[in-house]
């Protein structure tokens, strides 16, 4: 099993530079947020004029449009756009499978999380780090400000292998936190022992916008195994005796392909973001592909 992550392996200036131009754009910013760059439905003391509405008793008289009153003889209020932040909850999978192979999926997960955090912090959004395995392990409360990237990176570097993946427990515990609605980025291989049904059921319970970053490698679909094997699950420790023949391999490929298609279909039907990220490939390039024209609308 791979060892824990290091700060040096994460802080790659070139990598961070390559994602600096990317932006996260929220379709809908939750109310009562901080002042930031995201356009919210709140109307308040922003600088950008948005609309007029009739005066109602109790409205702030400072917002009355006196020019309009002089021309029309009716009282209207000037409404301004409120810019707020988008909470971004970065949830890397730290189950044992994330640290099993080389390079570990955890490294790709951490670099992805760092890249997204860099983007979010740069646009004054708040970022939280909520790694998970069998349970949610809140590691960093929402922080904001571009100067907090190092804090975030240190938190990432402290990630350690957990137990097995349990998305149902994770989503239940995530809901229990009653976090302000935002963007939950799940960075995982999604190899939930319960299979695709358990996975989709769990994800349906998430009350946030979801971006699924699926960590894959070529050997997932084409395992280089043959002969009489006792396959041991690195997370649960359970073993499975398999005579790996071409026919069994073909059935394995079929099962993996079906699972993948099911996950993609689920994301498409729910309007979730879904990125298949090859952990052995260029992380920045694959992330860039997600940001069409440099923007990802969450």
């Amino acid at each position: 099993m791979a060892t824990a992550l290091s700060l040096e392996s994460l802080l790659d200036p070139a990598f961070l530079e390559s994602v600096a131009r990317l932006r996260l754009v929220a379709r809908q910013v939750p109310r009562e947020g901080r002042f930031a760059d995201q356009r919210s439905r709140d109307q308040g003391a922003g600088l950008e004029f948005r609309d007029h509405r009739p005066y109602s008793p109790g409205d702030d008289l400072r917002a009355m449009d006196w020019n309009l009153y002089r021309r029309l003889g009716k009282v209207f209020l000037r409404l301004f756009e409120e810019l707020e932040d988008l909470p971004v909850y970065l949830c890397p999978d730290v189950s044992a499978s994330a640290f099993h192979e080389e390079p570990p999926r955890a490294l790709a997960a951490a670099r992805t999380a760092l890249a997204l955090a860099s983007i979010a912090l740069a646009q004054h959004d708040s970022v939280a780090l909520l790694p998970f395995a069998e349970h949610l392990q809140p590691l960093l409360r929402p922080i904001s400000g571009s100067g907090r990237l190092m804090t975030f990176a240190r938190a990432l570097a402290s990630l350690e292998p957990g137990g097995s993946t349990d998305l149902a427990t994770f989503t239940r515990e995530l809901g229990a936190l009653r976090l302000r609605r935002g963007l939950v980025v799940l960075i995982s291989d999604f190899f939930d022992p319960g299979g695709l049904d358990a996975l989709t059921t769990a994800l349906r319970n998430v009350r946030h916008r979801l971006l699924l970053v699926q960590l894959v490698r070529a050997s997932d679909g084409e395992p280089a195994l043959e002969g009489e094997l006792r396959l041991v699950d690195c997370e649960s420790g359970q073993s499975q005796d398999v005579s790996v023949t071409p026919a069994v391999l073909e059935r394995y490929r079929s099962a993996y392909r079906s699972w993948n298609e099911g996950l993609a279909e689920f994301a498409r039907s729910r309007g979730l973001g879904h990125l298949r990220l090859d952990v052995e490939g260029d992380i920045a390039a694959q992330l860039t592909a997600l940001f069409q024209r440099g923007r990802y609308q969450a």
């Binding site: 094997l229 690195c234 005796d241 069994v248």
Partner: peptide, 22 residues
């Protein structure tokens, strides 16, 4: 019983399905 070679994998999820079919 066949003497199996021990191999650790990230998941046995898909192997179980393949064996079930067989």
């Amino acid at each position: 019983r066949v003497r199996h070679r021990r191999e650790t994998v990230v998941t046995t999820l898909f192997w179980r399905q393949a064996i079930e079919e067989a």
